[in-house]
């Protein structure tokens, strides 16, 4: 190599920039597995589906089951409760009851307050969240803040007359 090539400033600059970019990309790529390792592992993902037998829930009764570690409320609604739920659309986050249930008798919602994630208690008609006082009706719709949204309906489907699988629509 001639002396001119060695002392060529532009060439040096270019090589330094190139090395920094490649090195930087390498560091960034190395971070990926570290960051990804903190996401849910396969065994956590595997508990993504839960099967529930509904036979022993009486009319007007509620059962709490765990799905992905979260509480899911399953409420068997009486004809009066169904009527009350269908007669309004909710106030803060309006949604018709028919959009929130597959069979009017069965309400399935995730029991996690949409405000900050407490578990609301079944009290009178609907639920009350004791953390900051949000209230939900018998369709899981928020009727009093601070919660901004209705209780979420998880994906589920009926595999038999009285059996559902939560986790897949």
């Amino acid at each position: 190599m001639g002396n001119e090539t060695l002392s060529d400033g532009d060439r040096r600059d270019f090589l330094i920039k190139l090395t920094s970019v490649v090195g930087g990309a390498g560091v960034a790529a190395t971070c990926v597995p570290f960051v990804a390792s903190m996401n849910p592992s396969s065994d956590v993902l595997a508990k993504a589906e839960t099967e529930v037998d509904l036979t022993d829930i009486p009319a007007g009764g509620m059962r709490t089951v765990a799905w992905q570690g979260k509480p899911v409320f399953i409420l068997r609604r009486t004809p009066e409760e169904i009527q009350a739920a269908q007669s309004s659309n909710g106030i803060i986050d309006p949604e018709p009851d028919s959009k929130r249930v597959q069979k009017p008798e069965w309400l399935v919602v995730i029991g996690v307050c949409t405000h900050m994630g407490c578990v609301p208690n079944k009290e009178g008609p609907g639920w009350t969240c004791h953390c900051h006082g949000s209230q939900y009706d018998d369709s899981g719709r928020v009727v009093r803040g601070p919660a901004p949204h209705n209780l979420e309906v998880p994906p589920y489907h009926f595999v038999a007359e009285n059996k559902i699988v939560i986790g897949k629509a």
Binding site: V35, M38, N39, P40, S41, V44, Q68, G69, K70
Partner: peptide, 17 residues
Amino acid sequence: VVWLRGDYMVGDATLTR
């Protein structure tokens, strides 16, 4: 939130980290 917890809820992964 799921990334911080390593689970859908605060759980074993959260406690360990």
